[in-house]
């Protein structure tokens, strides 16, 4: 009976830790996705400058992780991004192709700047809040064990 109780307690603590770990992994995943978004936007800018491809071909060749062009419509992949990040992504793609090269360059450089800020903020959050979530998860597991005892 004691062993079962011990295993149950350990299970609760591990579950708490896992919940915290999952939450902190989500934060790290967001950083990775923003990094990828930054890289693909940079590639998009370079292709726009040097290849001058039309919008759909440009998106297919350098932006495949975040959107898909299907029958002239754009389907977005927002996984790992917050609503705020998704707004930047959508605004960028919806405005892409409406101006001349100079305007497009300026607009993309501004988007890159915003993405860089988002990424550094996300990085800070991932470091500080990640640890908090893991600790909180473990503590919550311990608390539940104590409460049940």
């Amino acid at each position: 009976m004691g062993i079962i109780k011990l295993c149950g307690m350990a299970g609760l603590i591990i579950t708490g830790w896992l919940v915290g770990f999952k939450k902190s992994a989500d934060l790290r995943f967001r950083v990775q996705r923003l990094k990828k978004l930054y890289e693909e936007t940079e590639e998009l800018l370079h292709r726009l400058q040097y290849e001058g491809l039309e919008r759909d071909r440009l998106l297919l060749s350098s932006f495949s992780d975040f959107c898909l062009v299907w029958n002239g419509k754009i389907l977005f992949n927002e996984s790992g991004l917050t609503a705020e990040d998704a707004v930047i992504l959508k605004e960028m793609i919806q405005k892409l192709g409406t101006g001349n090269l100079e305007t497009e360059e300026k607009r993309l450089l501004y988007v890159l700047e915003r993405l860089r800020q988002q990424e550094s903020a996300a990085q800070k959050i991932a470091v500080t809040n990640g640890k908090i979530y893991q600790t909180l998860g473990t503590c919550a597991g311990i608390m539940i064990c104590i409460f049940l005892l």
Partner: peptide, 13 residues
Amino acid sequence: FFLLCKRSVYAHA
């Protein structure tokens, strides 16, 4: 106009 440009005004400058 945007459809004619294939939504890429810069490419048809």
